[in-house]
């Protein structure tokens, strides 16, 4: 389905009211422990309003999926959760992101410390121009890890379903791998430091179904100890792995392209019985 085609008629027909209220979002969380409470009022790139009114609570030891049409701001929201947008010129953020009770946008916060405990796998594979082993060990070195490097590197590579393919060439360059292998290397690099919260931006978009399943198994395994937020275009994947799902959409009514949250609910409810019209249309379109 081409989601952009879908967006044009829908936004013009439907009023802005078709989205979850704060009370509905709070009800969707219930009394589950929220590890990261993301409340975006507005998020600008220069004069461009990229995202507004998006509150997504991320529950501890769960997988939270972000879905929505291309360009609706899923990556933007995800990047703002570990302050990666700070590197974009003209980035402005209004709202708050509370992580374990601290607002990571508060002035006294060190963004470097934020990124140490919140890991990220990017939409594009981005291994370093160094050996496979060193790629995975990079974060360990940064954190002055004192334990057994070989063990941790192997565990991370196994976790990312890459070990069997690279165990005989750990010293060759990370750039010599295929695109899908590079993406798994990046996953291994991110999980090697065992971040409390792991943000993954379409980690499986370059993977074949088998590797995808293995990464999904890994996510399910990781959530026992850590928390994961994942952006995905694959609705089946969100259904398979995510405990809760946030559906974002793009508002083109005022001439801009502003993403905002439509619906946030436990995945089973959102996919089987969507509350909002746009969610229904998006899910229906995806399956037809």
């Amino acid at each position: 389905m081409n989601s952009q085609e879908l967006s044009a008629p829908m936004t013009s027909e439907m009023p802005d009211s078709g989205r979850d209220s704060a009370a509905q979002i709070a009800a969707a969380v219930g009394d589950a422990p929220v590890v990261m409470d993301c409340r975006i009022k507005t998020l600008h790139y220069g004069d461009f309003l990229a995202v507004r009114d998006t509150d997504i609570p991320i529950v501890s030891n769960e997988i939270t999926a972000f879905i929505g049409p291309s360009g609706c701001g899923k990556s933007t929201v995800l990047r703002s959760l570990n302050r990666m947008n700070d590197f974009v010129n003209g980035f402005r953020f209004e709202g708050s992101v509370h992580y374990r009770g601290q607002d990571i946008y508060a002035p006294e916060i060190d963004p470097v410390a934020v990124r140490r405990s919140i890991g990220m796998v990017f939409q594009q594979p981005n291994p370093f121009a160094m050996s496979i082993y060193k790629n995975v060990a990079f974060g360990l070195k940064l954190n002055n890890f004192k334990g057994n490097f070989d063990e941790r590197v192997e565990a991370a590579l196994r976790g990312a379903a890459l070990w069997d393919e690279v165990k005989d060439k750990l010293s060759s360059s990370g750039l010599s791998l295929s695109g899908g292998q590079q993406q798994r290397l990046c996953i291994a690099r991110a999980i090697a430091v065992e971040p409390e919260l792991l943000l993954m931006d379409e980690p499986c978009s370059a993977l074949d179904p088998i590797a995808t399943r293995r990464v999904e198994d890994l996510m399910l395994e990781l959530k026992e100890k850590y928390t994961i937020a994942i952006v995905t275009h694959n609705l089946q994947q969100a259904q398979r792995v995510a405990d809760r799902t946030a559906f974002l959409f793009v508002d083109t009514s005022a001439g801009g392209r502003t993403g905002y949250l439509i619906e946030y609910r436990p995945s089973a409810e959102l996919f089987e019985d969507p509350r909002e019209e746009r969610t229904k249309a998006y899910i229906r379109g995806e399956f037809s």
Binding site: R115, G119, F122, Q124, N126, F138, C186
Partner: peptide, 24 residues
């Protein structure tokens, strides 16, 4: 994107320059 990967791991600017940018 390599620099972003380093920053994303919690590397400071100096660490990124010394360990990623210059060797590359």
């Amino acid at each position: 994107k390599m620099k972003m990967a380093a920053f994303g791991m919690g590397a400071t600017r100096a660490q990124t320059v010394l360990r990623i940018v210059i060797p590359t």
